Amino acid sequence: MSKFHSKSINIFMTLDQNMIDGYFNKHDPAPIYKRQLSHQFEQYILETVATAKRYDVVFYKFKCTTESDKQYAEPLIYAVHRHFSDKKAERMRDFARFKQRNWILLAVGIVVAVICQGFLPILLSKEHNLPSGISNSLDIFAWVLLWHPMDELIFHWNPHLKDILLLEKLGSAESIIIEHEKKTAANNDPLRVVA
């Protein structure tokens, strides 16, 4: 038995001509599969998966009331996958910048610390030694300079990886078409979140 418990998170959408336009930016004249998702639709998807854990599986479930509604499934899932794949690529670029910036700050901090702790005492003779107040200030400055990049690199990289993994799931999740379901209060709401 696996020690990891996963659950499925279902993102429900209704496929019909009236609903499909609400999923996209109304000012985008492109074909469905190339259109930008609307802000509200993107927020609905992100709120649905907000509690997703690492091993959870995401499904897009399309509710069809007529046979002709199925024609919207493929272009819609293509648009959703493309949207979240683009978001993932953008998030990966942000993560690369985050790492590069913090590694550079850490290198600068180490150089300053080495200068303050190593070279200044060697360069100054014993009779020209720095006053203890200035020496202590340089020590504090060097450690403060080191603290931020170390803190970021040790403790703050995980949210980036979590977002990238979630966007990866959204950009490649399977889609399932639901047909001929019995009408219930739950099924009447096309955007109901079921986890």
Rank of each mutant, 00 (worst) to 15 (best):
F84M: 00
N158Y: 15
M13Y: 04
W157L: 03
H39A: 14
N187V: 00
Q43E: 15
H148E: 12
S38A: 11
L120F: 10
I176Y: 13
S172M: 05
F155W: 09
H27K: 15
L46P: 02
Y23K: 09
L146Y: 08
N25P: 04
P31A: 14
N187H: 08
E179Q: 10
F98H: 02
A52S: 14
T14M: 13
F95E: 07
N187M: 01
S135Y: 11
T48A: 13
C64S: 10
I110Y: 10
F155M: 02
L124I: 06
A89P: 01
K34R: 14
K3H: 14
D21G: 11
T184L: 08
L161D: 00
T184N: 06
L170W: 09
H83P: 01
T184Q: 07
T51F: 15
D21Q: 13
D21I: 12
S175Q: 06
S68R: 11
I9F: 03
H5K: 10
S172I: 00
N188F: 09
V144Q: 06
I115V: 15
Q17I: 01
Q43M: 07
P190T: 04
H27Q: 12
S6R: 08
L153V: 01
Y33C: 09
L161M: 12
F41S: 06
A107R: 00
E152F: 03
S125R: 08
G22Y: 14
K88R: 15
W147S: 05
K7I: 03
R54H: 12
K126C: 03
D56R: 05
K70E: 15
V194C: 06
